[in-house]
């Protein structure tokens, strides 16, 4: 008995088509599931909490470092510049949520100074970012 020969692929590149499919799927997964944000110029270890709400989309991100450094959208700022910049940004898009990522070891007076400055800039509610307990 003579079996028919399997159809021979003329193009050797056809063998890598499934590979490309998988790589495309991975690419789309990372693009959709991951968030791309400007990292702060210093490291911030978020405090842990058991509960908490969903992170708002497109918030104004403010980072507070361990020794009181402040960064707005990844750029280091002083308190007075921050207040002006936040007031200006909120004028452009009122009601934009303001998110504060404070290091767990940061001092309370640094956090309260920051919150006072935000209050002066017209922010009424602040989203303190935490990470889920036991997540890391």
């Amino acid at each position: 008995m003579k079996l028919p020969l399997p159809p021979s692929h003329k193009d050797p590149e056809e063998h890598i088509l499934p590979l490309i499919n998988i790589v495309f799927l991975l690419l789309i997964f990372f693009m959709v599931a991951g968030t791309l944000t400007a990292p702060p110029p210093f490291s911030v270890e978020l405090p842990a909490s058991e509960r908490g709400g969903e992170v708002a989309t497109e918030p104004l991100r403010i980072h507070l470092g361990r020794s009181g450094e402040i960064a707005l959208e990844g750029r280091e700022e002083g308190l007075t510049e921050l207040e002006e910049a936040v007031a200006k940004l909120l004028e452009e898009s009122p009601g934009r949520p303001v998110q504060v990522q404070a290091d767990r070891q940061a001092r309370a007076d640094a956090l309260l100074d920051l919150m006072d400055a935000l209050r002066a800039a017209g922010v009424e509610r602040i989203d303190l970012v935490t990470q889920r307990e036991g997540a890391r």
């Binding site: 990372f30 991951g34 944000t37 978020l46 908490g52 935490t130 990470q131």
Partner: peptide, 17 residues
């Protein structure tokens, strides 16, 4: 995208200024 994206489990606690 693998290196640049973050997958931290972030949540928020809202406080009044």
């Amino acid at each position: 995208f693998m290196l640049a994206s973050t997958f931290t489990t972030e949540q928020i606690l809202t406080v009044e200024a």
